[in-house]
Simulated assay, not measured.
Amino acid sequence: MAVSRGPSCRRASWQVLSSIPGEVNLAGKKKGMLMSSKFKTRAGGVLSFLLVLLLGSAPALAGAVDDKKPVPISRQAPPLGLYYYCIDPDNYPEDGFIGTVTVGYDVDWNGRTENIAVQSSTNPCLDLSAVTITKVWLYDYKSARKGSAEDRKLTATLEYRITEETIHKIRTLMEEEGGLDRDAQPLLRVPPEYADFRRCVNGPGVWNARVVLEFDVTAEGAPINVKTVDATRSCYKRAAEKSVVQWVYAPKIVDRQPVAREGVRTTIEFQIGN
């Protein structure tokens, strides 16, 4: 007897076709999985970076384990592309230290960070990079649900140091490109949730769809004004738009300042099959 598979048994995949020069194409599978691009900046280079994580109390720094605190899955250091414009290659400290930023944030029940705010900073130019990278950190959702709301309030102190190699690459970039301007670049793309387009799958077989979206990226790296400009099946529009709103970008840089980027276009392709 043939058994018909329900929607929950289907394999769903998605792919983003980028439109920004230098942007990395991503493809992902499994609903709810977070995809972070292999972020590359034109400055490139190896960054000497120290990330000190303070999980809310002094004992945690001494090695004590608090089983009520969320367990981190992914906590990336800020890529150079998030703050290279804060570095003056002709005037920088000999020890490479350019500042520290302490951020406070909450972890929601899904393991995502929220309510991120700078608590202290020795270099305000670095604040945006610290807040932006904190947005893409991910915690184990099971551990996040064990403790109280107070247990999910965390603090992280980021210490920034640069190397001679970093300075050399920034100088080379300035000579070759005539400056340090850069377009907006993706740091995190949250894929569409299967639950948001399950109703679009009608019976067995393979169902494909393509949704073209347009949006703006703020100077803080957040997608806004998300709208669908074309879709082969309108049923998928809501899932695609809901996904893009959660993405995180490194903002566009003009004259060493983060600025808004208008008119970004991205195509999301859905492939659903048995």
Score class of each variant (00 low, 15 high):
residue 44 G to E: 11
residue 210 R to Y: 04
residue 151 D to T: 06
residue 51 L to M: 10
residue 242 K to A: 14
residue 31 K to N: 13
residue 168 H to K: 15
residue 16 V to P: 00
residue 89 P to Q: 09
residue 57 S to C: 08
residue 239 A to F: 01
residue 36 S to L: 05
residue 228 T to F: 00
residue 48 S to F: 08
residue 126 L to W: 02
residue 75 R to L: 13
residue 143 S to P: 10
residue 166 T to V: 14
residue 268 I to R: 00
residue 236 Y to W: 03
residue 41 T to N: 12
residue 112 R to H: 12
residue 120 S to A: 15
residue 1 M to P: 07
residue 221 G to A: 09
residue 191 P to K: 05
residue 13 S to M: 04
residue 31 K to L: 04
residue 99 G to Y: 04
residue 100 T to L: 08
residue 228 T to L: 01
residue 217 V to I: 15
residue 49 F to W: 10
residue 28 G to C: 06
residue 267 T to M: 12
residue 65 V to S: 08
residue 169 K to Q: 14
residue 14 W to K: 01
residue 239 A to R: 00
residue 45 G to T: 05
residue 221 G to W: 09
residue 138 L to Y: 12
residue 153 K to I: 00
residue 185 Q to I: 05
residue 102 T to W: 00
residue 31 K to I: 06
residue 7 P to S: 01
residue 115 N to M: 07
residue 173 L to H: 05
residue 12 A to T: 07
residue 35 M to A: 11
residue 15 Q to G: 10
residue 102 T to L: 05
residue 100 T to F: 11
residue 260 A to L: 11
residue 148 S to R: 10
residue 66 D to G: 01
residue 173 L to T: 05
residue 37 S to R: 02
residue 138 L to S: 14
residue 145 R to F: 02
residue 43 A to M: 08
residue 126 L to Y: 03
residue 4 S to C: 03
residue 20 I to F: 02
residue 50 L to C: 01
residue 228 T to N: 08
residue 104 G to S: 11
residue 131 V to A: 06
residue 49 F to Y: 14
residue 251 P to K: 05
residue 82 L to M: 13
residue 262 E to N: 12
residue 60 A to E: 13
residue 248 V to I: 13
residue 261 R to N: 13
residue 9 C to S: 14
residue 142 K to S: 05
residue 260 A to S: 12
residue 188 L to Y: 02
residue 254 V to Y: 10
residue 107 V to M: 03
residue 68 K to F: 14
residue 42 R to P: 03
residue 136 V to H: 01
residue 46 V to G: 12
residue 232 T to L: 07
residue 274 N to Q: 09
residue 74 S to F: 07
residue 90 D to L: 03
residue 189 R to S: 03
residue 80 L to F: 06
residue 144 A to C: 08
residue 20 I to H: 00
residue 85 Y to V: 01
residue 194 Y to F: 15
residue 79 P to M: 08
residue 154 L to D: 02
residue 79 P to C: 07
residue 40 K to L: 14
residue 157 T to P: 01
